[in-house]
Design a binder for these strands. Structure first.
Lengths: 349, 349
DNA sequence: TTTTGTTTTGCAATCGATTGCCCTATTTTT
DNA sequence: AAAAATAGGGCAATCGATTGCAAAACAAAA
């Protein structure tokens, strides 16, 4: 199996009757080595099929140009876009990316974070799992001098970089748009309230209603309706009310909005005439449904880039804290057919 | 900045007046160490906030429990599912996953592969970029005793594990389904023919036509129609023919099929009555369009799991070659409204 | 009590690359 | 021609964990 050991700088040194240190310098293009020697080493290295050993190098240099990313689910459009954005930047800097998914499980998130700390990565980028749990593992990261950047779903009390969407504002604008379209009984599908992002979205909803003097009705707010199925169930319930809503804001996700759409369509309800629907995330499918779904775009790829750049800025800049620690990206309401009942009126700039 | 260096086994050894080797043994739960000592070391390690240094350990042990994955695009549904599937398996085995995207560029693919070789990963899993180029970098991987698993888009001539879809068969079945639905002038949107998968899909198309004695017409085959835009352009051209097709098989992707759908719908063509449309990949949106699009599911998550398991099987099994080297997964035709003009007839088992 | 056997622990080399320091040539300066 | 500067290269320690071998400590058997 193990036919031949890998070539090391010692092998090259031996062959060329040089010291390993010179080989090392030649390979790293140091100017303390004669140009001719350098060329010779490079040529020989290629011939001998030499490959730099990053483990040894990183160990000696005491740093590992690798960034760890922990997300709830790799194959969710939002997260895979974030990762793609991050990769775009780290690739150019010659950094590696280690990816883990928590599957929304707190225990697994802890595992992943610990594995990354063991790897001595330079930075950990995380969006926390929905499942509740203590945050010691994140504190650990900081204790080990590893940069920590939180995004989207963040732990407020930890003093780290945070890249988030201005959920409240986005939510506020979406609901305002609904109001401008003449909707008055606007229901809210909420996500798990232990996650900031969902609390913020609720805040935005409430603020918009208050601002326009529309009463806030408990019966129109449904907790934990954040999958297609739960969204459908909540919709069935809402539409069965004595006084059903005339619009539903699925603040949790577009999947949830999809559930709403299906239930409403099956009941023969006209959209957007009798019911307005607004989702969240701008999943690709939202422009393909009939009618297409109004939603909120989070600029996920560019958000990923922003996150990665934040790390490199701090690295390359003066050694002290870059301010501000929180980058808030304002998402954009994408108005589509599912809420446009007054042609021509369009709240987005 | 660098407040304190990280705790090492030497620090622990010093504190407990032990040898580093004993600490190492205690931490790795070796049975050559007294239970009491072991407990003491573990306790002290925790107190001192010790974290195992994977770089040093891997260097010494000469192996790196990490798998590298190179895909064209991380944020494509098929690939992000593959990755999710792989991660599911590797996580359980305590392996790390390094992810790279080639962005369909050959040069970048070479870069990524080299970086992974430098990291001395145990295995590289790759689906090659569409852009053409030599395969020395992959040969290199093998020369360095690193396992190589190719999937989906593979280089035939390299003797590695390959996990592929039976594209020809799937394509054959899809076209057969179209024929059974009464379509006779079936157009084909092809992908870049330097990639096997697209050649195979074309083969399946041709085989199905021949089998049913349907003439193969050059004018109905469009090269390089593998994005939504290119699919739309090809469709515009096809529908402008004197004798236009009555079905279009977008063998390249569902995005391409989406382009077909849009152009056809805009022209007021009835689907599936006047034009059948079939895509490839079972992207989530295909069931949401109107009409929903018939497509081919590739079992991407389970494919990812298969790939990862292949590596571990070989690792854990007897040291010699596991046969067969090629795993072929038969995709499934998902019949939806875009091709169902004869209710009740349904080719899929 | 002596011998043999078994645990438990320590010593020191090792993995491969990097780097501070020192030593020769060679070149430049005066 | 002597002194100073510079280029080129070697020596050896280092990063942190692992492991074969040897030593010491203790228990069991003769």
């Amino acid at each position: 199996m193990q036919r031949q050991k890998r070539t090391t700088i010692y092998d090259i040194a031996l062959k060329l009757n040089l010291a390993a240190s010179s080989v090392s310098r030649a390979l790293s293009n140091s100017n303390k080595v004669n140009a001719a020697t350098k060329a010779l080493v490079l040529k020989t290295a290629a011939e001998m099929n030499y490959q730099h050993n990053a483990m040894a190098s990183n160990l000696r240099k005491g740093n590992n140009p690798t960034i760890g990313v922990v997300v709830p689910r790799i194959n969710q459009f939002f997260f895979s876009n974030i990762i793609a954005g991050i990769e775009e930047v780290t690739y150019k800097k010659g950094y590696n990316l280690i990816i883990c998914q928590s599957n929304e499980s707190h225990a697994r998130e802890v595992d992943c974070v610990n594995a990354l700390v063991n790897q001595h990565v330079s930075c950990i980028i995380i969006s926390i799992a929905a499942e509740n749990g203590p945050h010691e593992h994140l504190q650990q990261v900081l204790d080990h001098q590893i940069r920590l950047i939180q995004f989207d779903r963040v732990v407020e009390e930890l003093d780290t970089f945070k890249v988030i969407n201005n959920n409240e504002k986005a939510s506020y604008e979406a609901v305002t748009h609904l109001i401008e379209q003449g909707y008055r009984r606007i229901a809210l599908l909420e996500g798990p309230q232990q996650l900031d992002i969902f609390r913020q979205r609720k805040e935005g909803y409430l603020a918009a209603l208050r601002k326009h003097n529309i009463p806030v009705l408990e019966e129109l707010m449904c907790e934990n309706a954040w999958t297609k199925e739960l969204g459908a169930a909540a919709t069935a319930q809402l539409l069965g009310l004595e006084n059903p809503p005339d619009a539903i804001f699925a603040s949790t996700s577009d999947f949830s909005a999809l559930g709403v759409l299906e239930v409403a369509t099956n009941k023969g309800i006209q959209i957007p005439k009798d019911l307005g629907i607004c989702g969240y995330s701008n999943e690709p499918f939202t422009e393909l449904t009939s009618p297409s779904i109004t939603t909120i775009d989070q600029y996920s790829i560019s958000m990923g880039k922003t996150i990665a750049n934040l790390y490199f800025q701090e690295m390359e800049g003066l050694e002290f804290n870059v301010e501000p620690k929180i980058v808030s990206i304002k998402p954009k309401v994408i108005v589509r057919k599912s809420t446009q009942r007054i042609p021509g009126v369009n709240t987005t700039a």
